[in-house]
Simulated scan of single mutants.
Amino acid sequence: MAGRPGEHVPRSQHSPDRRPGRVVGRVSRRRGQGGRTGHRCRPEPSRSGRAGDGGRGLLRQWLHRRLGHGTHVASVVGGSGVGSGSGSTRRGVAPGAWLLVGKVLGDDGFGSWSQVIAGMEWAVEQGADVVNMSLGSSGASDGTDPMSLALNDLSRRSGALFVVAAGNDGEQGPRTVGSPGAADAALTVGAVDRNDSLAPFSSRGPRRGDEAVKPDVTAPGVGIVAARAAGTAMGSPVDEHYVAASGTSMATPHVAGAAALLAQRHPEWTAARLKDALISSAVTVDGQKVTEQGGGRIDARAAVLGAVSATGTLALGPFTSEATEPEGSRVLHTNSSDKDRASTRSTPAGSMLRATARSCATR
């Protein structure tokens, strides 16, 4: 499906063979190991259940004769791993999560802004706490396009956290993050390999226009083995039930799954707080720029079990030589435990910030 004239056409973010795929969505209802989660989709018939059975069951009818992108992504989020025989070696990040599946792109992996926005609205209407978007525009964005603005508004009004692929245009250099990953409220995800090396295809920041930091975090997105939809040939098939694929589409559901676990542990947390916790607990990788990795490679265990979180990112706007007055922004450290804790964070200039987070718990 073509976008409207003047639009950057949204597409799936599967790489490097660039075969188009499809977006899936899931919503968990605070059962098993996930919070309520959603994948961007459009308002059309959906099926709820668990993913990860080699493309059978949950997505069998919905994905019949299609490319398998949605099955793969859903499996990374909440796959059961039963197709691997042992039932554990290829489980998703939140295998107990319940998924709500929808479709926002055409069978060729492309669609229009209006389709994607309709899907975002639909996911929010279903009560999703976390919305995974393994898609993006075909061109870079400054965060003021319709999809990005819609994401900001929907997140603000609903409290849903939108986890979005940074894009696969990294080999074109910096300022290649597309929409809706360029949105302020999006938790934007780049891709790394098993050694935490940045994937060549992973789109880089800074954001076009104001030079804000994007992506926000990175996650594994190279050679990811997950469920294979029956009869499909996306990626490199491992066996009848599993296929290996690469792209920021594959990195994004790792973060969405971690967000689901975090939302389950802290159901009262807002989207902004979930985002801060995931960014501030990430592992910074030496040799990578902040505009390539954001806060670093996601660490689900640290995010879910950690007691202290902090402001993940600040968008300070462009610097001009006419600005003579200093401006300040607050970095908030939040302690959810019953003990006082000290934390240390590095700044881009290499200096260290040390703060003591006082307990917020009632003693």
Rank of each mutant, 00 (worst) to 15 (best):
A118K: 10
Q126P: 11
G143I: 01
V124R: 08
D129C: 05
S134M: 06
V116R: 00
G127K: 06
E121C: 12
D129N: 07
A185Y: 02
S179E: 02
S148G: 12
S158R: 11
D129S: 10
A186H: 06
N152C: 01
M147R: 07
A123D: 15
V131C: 13
A118G: 14
L149E: 05
D184S: 09
T188W: 06
A118S: 15
F162Y: 04
M120N: 07
N168H: 03
A186K: 04
G181M: 01
D145S: 02
D129G: 15
G190I: 12
D142S: 10
R157V: 05
T176L: 03
G190S: 14
D129K: 07
Q126N: 15
S137F: 03
G167R: 06
G190R: 07
L149P: 01
P146I: 14
A186L: 12
P146N: 04
M147W: 10
N132R: 10
P180F: 06
L161N: 05
S138H: 13
G139I: 09
G170V: 13
I117C: 00
L149M: 11
G127P: 02
R157K: 12
A140E: 12
V130A: 13
S148K: 06
V130S: 03
N168V: 13
S155Q: 12
P174R: 13
S179C: 01
N152L: 04
D184W: 08
V116M: 07
D169Y: 14
A186G: 05
G139K: 05
G119I: 11
R175G: 03
V164W: 00
G181W: 00
M120R: 08
A140R: 09
G167Q: 10
A166Y: 05
A123W: 11
A140H: 05
G181Q: 01
A140Q: 00
L187Y: 02
V163F: 07
G173A: 09
V163E: 00
A182C: 05
G119W: 09
G173H: 14
V130I: 15
L135D: 12
G170R: 11
T176I: 00
S179A: 11
G136R: 09
S137G: 12
G181A: 10
D153K: 15
P174L: 12
A118C: 12
G178K: 07
G159E: 07
E121I: 14
A150H: 01
V189M: 15
Q172V: 14
A183V: 05
D145R: 01
T188Y: 10
A183R: 00
L154R: 00
G159K: 05
W122S: 10
A128S: 15
V177G: 01
M120F: 14
T176A: 04
S155L: 02
A165W: 03
S137I: 03
G159P: 02
A140P: 08
G143W: 00
D145M: 06
M147F: 09
P174F: 10
L161C: 09
M133H: 11
L154P: 00
Q115H: 06
R157C: 03
G170P: 11
M120L: 15
T144E: 11
T176H: 03
D169M: 13
R156S: 00
S141I: 02
A160Y: 04
V189F: 09
D184K: 04
D142N: 13
